[in-house]
């Protein structure tokens, strides 16, 4: 157990501890000396403009990209040394839809369940649970490539939950979706809150406002702010996340 150092007094289990995490691409600093703690069960949103370092941060935490410097512990496993252990407790849904296109929705679910090592009974249970949570029953026999963009994204996120991850990375989960599909996904993500730790990156300020327990704002690879919405509003003297975000990243120039 760790004390939540953000100071709200709750005792929470720490899920992720990031220490001086840095990523350089040639001479470009994608992530610059990042230090952050994320707690079990919280939904943490990383906000930032393009190139802020959000996706690189997620990729490093998910062991998809090696950091240039620093380390991060996921439930005390190092992203540098304990890749296999970390892969047991995480899953990811990338910006682009990540599904097997020519397989049906059902075949996609069974494929991922089998790949995560589930038994036949567990696969049936996973399928039922996922179908219920994401209302996939109506498209179960449809080929994934023939689904609408919204349904494909929904399936893509659903697949990330099959392995029952303790930590779920959602990289721009609603990018390119229409407003209805986005709201539907918000509902689904809201239902996941508290059941696992979710780290979400987004460009949509209203998304971060609606879903997050805490928010981190990044610019040029640096973390400029970490805290709750209320703390963000207090710090910037603004009343919504978008205005507060602009205040932080522009340094009050806009």
């Amino acid at each position: 157990m760790f004390k939540n150092t953000e100071g709200n007094g709750f005792i929470m289990e720490r899920a992720i501890k990031i220490n001086n995490l840095t990523k350089l691409y040639k001479d470009v600093i994608a992530v610059d000396n990042l230090n952050l703690e994320i707690y079990e069960g919280e939904l943490f949103s990383l906000l930032g403009v393009n190139g802020a370092g959000k996706t690189t941060t997620i990729k490093m935490l998910a062991t998809l990209t090696r950091p240039t410097n620093g380390d991060a512990a996921i439930f005390d496993y190092s992203i540098l040394k304990d890749e296999d252990k970390i892969k047991e407790v995480i899953d990811i849904s990338m910006q682009e839809t990540a599904i097997a296109r020519k397989l049906t929705v059902e075949e996609n679910i069974v494929f991922y369940a089998k790949l995560s090592g589930q038994t036949d009974e567990e696969i049936i249970a996973s399928k039922e649970k996922i179908c219920k949570s994401f209302e996939l029953d109506k498209v179960l026999k449809k080929q994934a490539s023939k689904l609408s963009g919204g349904w494909q994204r929904k399936l893509s996120i659903a697949l990330a939950l099959i392995s029952n991850p303790k930590i779920l990375f959602l990289d721009e989960p609603t990018l390119g979706l229409d407003v209805l599909a986005r709201r539907e996904l918000w509902k689904t993500i809201n239902e996941l809150k508290g059941k696992m730790t979710i780290i979400l990156t987004t460009h949509y300020m209203e998304e971060a406002e609606a879903l997050s327990d805490r928010i981190g704002i990044m610019k040029d690879g640096k973390l400029l702010f970490v805290g709750t919405k209320e703390e963000l509003f207090l710090k910037t003297n603004k009343e919504n996340v978008e205005d507060a975000f602009i205040e932080i990243v522009s340094g009050g120039a806009l």
């Binding site: 990811i92 990338m94 682009e96 990540a98 296109r101």
Partner: peptide
Amino acid sequence: ALDRSTSFLTRLYVSKA
């Protein structure tokens, strides 16, 4: 190439394969 372009493979990289 298609598996790579759609991030399908990136997701599978997070599995233990």
